[in-house]
Computed example of a mutant assay.
Amino acid sequence: MPQGSRPRCKACARPLSHCLCHLIPRLWPDTQLLVIQHPDEASHALNTARLLVAGLVNAHLLVTESLADHPDWVRRLSDSGWRNELLFPGPDARELGVACDTRPRRLILLDGTWRKARKLLYLNPILQSLPQVRLASGLSSRYRLRKVPHADALSTIEAGAEALSLLHPGFERDRLLAPFEALIDGQISAMGEQRYQRNYRDRQ
């Protein structure tokens, strides 16, 4: 451990004094989630993809830029026995919803800035081949510590929670989002209300 660094929880990767594990649920919706995270995001202090996957039994986090390095996942995403869909607001994306297709469903999310998410899509032909779905417009992010590219841009955990809530009525979205809410509140508390108001409030 580098000198001066704080010991961290091995499960949630937060400093031990700010561990979020007691808030992380273990939910098991029928839809499987695969989160493909750009490597630059892996060490980000506000890593919502990690919290999303930790809260779902039926979810996987893959940190990579190229799926060519993960042939097993290329095979899974090519499996016609699964309904694989990419949650990405492309021009041809249709609104996510429940359908009559009885195949097991897997939703793929890209974690990174918009530029990095587009790069992940560009670099991976298997992702380009998947049907794209999007969330309904008009959603508002609770991520109060970033400047969003547009009003309804959501963090990865928020996007996953909204998608699962839509596909599975009664899904416990608030339980999944609880560690995220605590993470944001803790960051705001640490920086102080005045600094938060000065640097972030006007960016929403």
Score class of each variant (00 low, 15 high):
G55H: 09
G55C: 11
G55V: 14
G55Q: 07
G55K: 08
L56D: 09
L56H: 09
V57G: 02
V57Y: 06
V57F: 09
V57W: 07
V57H: 11
N58C: 04
N58Y: 00
N58M: 03
N58G: 07
N58W: 02
N58T: 07
A59I: 12
A59M: 05
A59Q: 04
H60N: 08
H60D: 12
H60W: 10
H60E: 14
L61P: 02
L61K: 06
L61M: 11
L62H: 02
L62T: 07
L62C: 13
L62Y: 04
L62D: 04
V63C: 14
V63A: 10
V63T: 15
V63S: 07
V63D: 06
T64G: 05
T64A: 15
T64L: 11
T64F: 01
T64S: 15
T64R: 08
E65Y: 01
S66V: 09
S66M: 08
S66F: 08
S66Y: 07
S66T: 12
L67Q: 03
L67V: 13
L67M: 11
L67W: 06
L67F: 05
A68W: 10
A68C: 12
A68G: 14
A68V: 14
D69V: 06
D69C: 09
D69M: 06
D69L: 13
D69Y: 02
D69H: 05
H70L: 10
H70C: 08
H70P: 00
H70T: 04
H70Q: 10
P71A: 07
P71F: 00
P71E: 01
P71Y: 02
D72G: 01
D72N: 00
D72T: 00
D72Q: 00
D72Y: 02
D72E: 11
W73F: 10
V74Q: 06
R75T: 12
R75K: 09
R75P: 05
R75W: 00
R76N: 02
R76L: 01
R76F: 02
R76T: 01
R76K: 06
R76A: 00
L77W: 08
L77T: 08
L77F: 06
L77E: 03
S78M: 09
S78I: 10
S78H: 04
S78T: 13
D79G: 07
S80R: 08
G81F: 00
G81M: 03
G81K: 02
G81P: 00
W82T: 10
W82I: 11
W82F: 14
W82L: 15
R83C: 09
R83H: 06
R83K: 07
R83Y: 05
R83S: 08
R83F: 03
N84G: 06
N84A: 15
N84V: 15
N84S: 15
E85R: 09
E85H: 01
E85T: 06
E85D: 04
L86T: 14
L86M: 14
L86Y: 11
L86E: 12
L87I: 15
L87M: 15
F88W: 15
F88S: 10
F88L: 13
F88H: 13
F88T: 12
F88I: 15
P89R: 08
P89L: 14
P89G: 11
